[in-house]
Design a binder for these strands. Structure first.
Lengths: 150, 150
DNA sequence: TGCTTTAGTTGTTTTTTGCAACTAATATTG
DNA sequence: CAATATTAGTTGCAAAAAACAACTAAAGCA
């Protein structure tokens, strides 16, 4: 069995799955995002309940994809921390999208949702939406996917 | 080994991963979305290159989560097709988010990106962004995640 | 009726995961 | 500064999941 890889599908969604299409990868990123962008190995093991060998592997992958970087906690020290890169931070809308989606269809209404506030005024953010170039909200039926090549 | 499940993490992102946190699930959804919302078993096997047993399992899961429904192609017939539900369609922003994210950081610029057009005027849609209640684009540093319970 | 298509199921092999124990280097504390 | 604790992994093993191929049964079609 060859390691699961979707390069036969040229679609960028498939290619994204190659990189972050595994639950633990997304959860590592979630953890970093909610922690302000940095995290330590053992802290992630504890908070996520992920196996150490799996975390090791996922972090390596995320590092080679330049989604996180590994650097000393303090200048010159040798204790490391993992830090989201700009590329990693740009997955935040997707993370928020998952949170909002789940909460919209949440099966257990006892638990209250995870909300996201604008730090400036403490107002909740808008639900993630697809917008036309001039700002109209678009539904699935309004959107035409176009693959330019081939 | 117990089946991977993230219910110990109450976070809605983790709970989403329980449902669609596996690459093939997302790719099945992508395929349905790009095909207008419906698809047949064999067609998915061929287009995705997914193993039949795995597709069977993923579709069952998506069905129990009411992300897709299974129904006869024509009234009364017994040939089935899988169809995105409203809950499934609401993952489209996330799908678009993945496509845009990958294309923004695309390592192989030869292949051109997957773009999404507004059917009304054929203009490309906006990049997916997080917006404040009054419509300002927010970056990660502007957003405060708040978990209401506990 | 006979051939083809569809939508799976079953069995086997290979990979990946989860878990626990271990390690080596670095920090902390008395 | 010696002893202890913490950190960031690595290794080995058992179990689960994935890939692959072959098979099946019902439906559709000619």
């Amino acid at each position: 069995m060859v390691k699961n890889n979707f390069s036969h599908l040229c679609c960028p969604v498939a290619r994204s799955m190659d990189v972050v299409g595994e639950a633990w990868s997304m959860l590592v990123l979630r953890n970093l995002m909610l922690a302000g962008g940095t995290g330590r190995f053992d802290q992630m093991v504890e908070e996520l309940g992920i196996s150490r060998n799996i975390l090791t592997e996922r972090l390596k992958r995320l590092e080679t994809e330049e989604i996180v970087s590994k650097q000393p906690v303090q200048e010159g020290g040798r204790r490391m921390e993992y830090k989201l890169t700009a590329k990693g931070w740009e997955l935040m809308p997707i993370m928020i999208g998952f949170a909002q989606w789940f909460d919209r269809w949440r099966p257990d209404p006892e638990r209250s949702p995870l909300t996201f506030l604008d730090r400036r005024d403490n107002q909740p953010i808008q639900p993630l939406r697809v917008l036309s170039h001039d700002g109209r909200p678009l539904g699935p039926a309004d959107i035409l996917p176009v693959s330019d090549d081939q």
